[in-house]
């Protein structure tokens, strides 16, 4: 019996030191590259789009940003503008200012890939109704209260941020970290110092927010702005799903099922023929005073 034990232990030591992570071959379908169009626009600014090509999951190449695609902004059947490639910015830009309208479309074509197009969703452009002066709270925080009127019977989506422009840094702007225990914001999404949320909990009412902001700006030196964006459906879906996907994590035991990011580019049958986002937002910005 002792011999058997020694043999078993030897086998165990031999094999248990073996690496439990191995590289394997998997049978993946052949990847068909598609056009990727990332175009997030703001009313009052120029139309802009990045055009690139998708890659296979195991590809290690850098993403290719196309410089010779044809990028059109259409209004119905009329071409509003053909965007020009700006090399310094790696994107296509228009000379035309973005206006709100559900008939606007983007159409991108390239000889090597299937042409893709997407339209915009209509949305309400909301203005800030009231904003109080910032009141200092404890521990280096300040309270900011503001409100706006949310239209009834439509789904509306918003994004807020608080920026300060620093005189000491030649007018460079920085975003302040915002906290709020408002349920709409708690259930919203935080990205790049901006809070993204919808109107499910206050649809059709005058909504008042009370924000807690980090007070590391200089009251005498800096200018503080409250920014309220009204964003369209595509903007909200894309950014919120992008955040969920990034939080899903790689842990296959504890993490959620993978999430797909919202995609604007579908063919007439509703099938995906490209990737990316075509969306628009509108900004209302108010300068804030201090108490």
């Amino acid at each position: 019996m002792k011999k058997i034990i020694y043999i078993l232990l030897s086998i165990f030591l031999l094999f248990s030191c073996d690496n439990l992570q191995t590289v394997i071959e998997v049978d993946l379908p052949e990847h068909e590259p598609k056009l990727v169009v990332n175009s997030i626009n703001q009313v009052g600014q120029k139309w802009k789009a990045y055009v690139s090509v998708s890659q296979a999951p195991l590809s290690n190449s850098d993403f290719v940003f196309l410089t010779d695609a044809t990028v059109l902004i259409m209004d119905g059947d009329n071409v509003v503008d053909t965007l020009k490639y700006i090399e310094s910015e790696f994107c296509y830009k228009s000379d035309v200012i973005v206006q709100q309208g559900a008939d606007f479309q983007i159409r991108v074509s390239h000889p090597m890939y299937e042409t893709v197009s997407a339209g915009l969703y209509s949305f309400d452009r909301i203005k800030i109704k009231s904003v109080d002066d910032i009141q200092s709270a404890s521990n280096g925080y300040g309270n900011l209260r503001f409100s706006f009127d949310d239209p009834a019977q439509t789904d509306n989506f918003y994004m807020i941020s608080i920026d300060y422009y620093s005189k000491s840094s030649d007018g460079e702007s920085y975003s302040l970290y915002i906290e709020s225990d408002d349920p709409s914001i708690v259930e919203g999404y935080y990205a790049d110092s901006k809070l993204l949320f919808d109107d499910k909990l206050f649809n059709g009412s005058t909504k008042e927010f009370n924000l807690l902001i980090d007070e590391y700006f200089s009251q005498s030196e800096d200018s503080i702005f409250l920014n309220l964006w009204s964003v369209d459906y595509a903007f909200y879906q894309y950014q919120s799903s992008l955040i969920i996907q990034s939080y899903s994590g790689d842990n296959p035991i504890f993490s959620a099922e993978p999430v797909n990011v919202y995609n604007s580019f579908l063919d007439e049958n509703g099938l995906i023929n490209g990737y990316g986002i075509f969306a628009v937002s509108d900004l209302d910005s108010v300068m804030i005073q201090f108490e």
């Binding site: 990847h31 990727v36 703001q42 998708s54 999951p57 993403f63 790049d192 901006k194 993204l196 950014q239």
Partner: peptide, 13 residues
């Protein structure tokens, strides 16, 4: 399992 990868764009566009 992932099928394709492509660049993402942030809230600032």
């Amino acid at each position: 399992f992932v099928d394709s990868r492509y660049p993402s764009v942030d809230v600032n566009g």
